[in-house]
Design a protein around this nucleic acid. Structure first.
Length: 231
DNA sequence: CCCTGATTCGC
DNA sequence: GCGAATCAGG
């Protein structure tokens, strides 16, 4: 498999959406988790809560110490020889601006004062299709070139495409769960309901048992826990 | 052990 | 540029 524009595009959205590399990998198919991570980094969209990013010790500790086993060829070692020394820990100061202005519409319709607004804590949410929703005061996303991203009905989301999700439920469709919560493809039946019931006819049959007269022998004792998974 | 992301490095 | 191998934390 190669990295077509489409695949790169979904990689981007899924990555930004917070899916793990493995998830993205088998969602795309044909690539390994490593491939996804590698590509993500090459695309420049890296860094996300990583479980291993600790150690301020940079990495010379690891790269320099076990230098013995690797025995790099003397001819090619620009990487190792790189002068990484002059890099303390003060990259912040030079950047205090870069935050133009935030237009805040006021009651009279004029563009009011610019609120410098405290930095970081901004919550962004991802809309269907992967675009980033912006709040009223939010600055345009840091990517100037107009995103060629359109919302096309063909492939709205990598997963749950035509399945009945929680949001699709209403009084008229069967809300019998298919699969199990937590599973990526968990959804609901979605059939038309048996009028007066929350489920379709078929699932009403499962949900409700006929009340038998007292004393009558109940033919099929319901399986307690080990019942087969319904799907 | 399983998972995770990061990094290295031969191709 | 690609991704397997490897590293390292949870």
């Amino acid at each position: 498999m190669s990295w077509t524009d489409e695949r790169i595009e979904s990689l981007r959205t899924m990555w930004e959406k917070g899916l793990t590399a493995s998830q993205i990998a088998d969602e795309l198919g044909g690539v390994s988790r490593n491939a996804v991570i590698g590509k993500a980094h090459r695309l420049g969209l890296k860094s996300r809560p990583s479980p291993v990013k600790a150690t301020d010790k940079v990495k010379p500790a690891k790269a320099a110490a076990p230098a013995a086993p690797k025995a790099v060829a003397p001819a090619a070692a620009p990487r190792a020889a790189a002068p990484i020394a002059p890099r303390p820990v003060a990259p912040t100061p030079p950047r205090s601006e870069a935050r133009p202005t935030v237009d805040t519409p006021t009651a009279d319709g004029s563009v009011g004062e610019q609120i410098p607004k405290a930095d970081q804590p901004r919550i962004v949410s991802i809309g269907p299709g992967g675009f980033i929703r912006q709040g009223p005061g939010d600055q345009q996303a840091p990517i100037p070139p107009a995103p060629p991203r359109r919302l096309v009905p063909a492939k709205p989301s990598p997963e749950i495409a035509d399945k009945t999700t929680l949001l699709d439920l209403n009084d008229r469709i069967c809300r019998w769960p298919m699969g199990h919560p937590g599973e990526p493809d968990f959804h609901f039946c979605g059939q038309a309901v048996n009028p007066g019931f929350p489920y379709c006819v078929e699932h009403c049959g499962r949900a409700y048992q006929a009340q038998l007269p007292r004393g009558t022998r109940r033919p099929p004792p319901p399986p307690p826990f080990g019942g087969p998974r319904v799907r």
